[in-house]
Amino acid sequence: MRYAMVIDTKKCVGCSDCVVACQNENRVPIGYCRDWVIEHAKGTFPNVSIELRSERCNHCENSPCVRCCPTGASHYEDGGLVKVTRQECIGCGACVQSCPYDARYSHPDGFVDKCTFCHHRLQEGKLPSCVSVCPTECMYFGDLDDKESKVYQLLQNRNWKVLAPEVGTKPHVYYLI
């Protein structure tokens, strides 16, 4: 099983609902976030285009954060999830520095926090809260090893990219372009 998130930039309107839903679901304190939205504009008026995309931890296959964690708090779980065990985290912040996507933050309660793909919801058979709230349904989640899955199909049939492929992290968040 390889969990993946596929986000269609052609449909995203940048509303940031994914951010608010995540904050509520995961009780992320105001002032912090596990996901965020980027707007990238190209061209000159009137030949101009924009890309909107929701970003978060990429749950990389080759994660610098897991490699650099001195206590083993950052670790892989089934399906390739990258998670932090709060009790083992000493809050040193090495992982925050190592992440090329700036996806981690130091929680005021003394540990490092980030997106878990809503692991607690996956265990209940639900989708991550950002995926289930998105009004445009531009976000998809599933198992890339399952060839029937929507995420697999989309990556087969559409053009896509990952962020910062040059750093070799093998991200599991894909963007349809």
Binding site: C15, D17, A21, N24, R27, V133, P135
Partner: peptide, 21 residues
């Protein structure tokens, strides 16, 4: 804790917008 859409509702179809959330 949180506010979510009602799936039977034709205004939200179970998905609230950021303001509702």
């Amino acid at each position: 804790w949180k506010i979510e859409g009602n799936e039977d509702d034709p205004h939200s179809n179970g998905r609230f917008c950021p303001r509702g959330t």
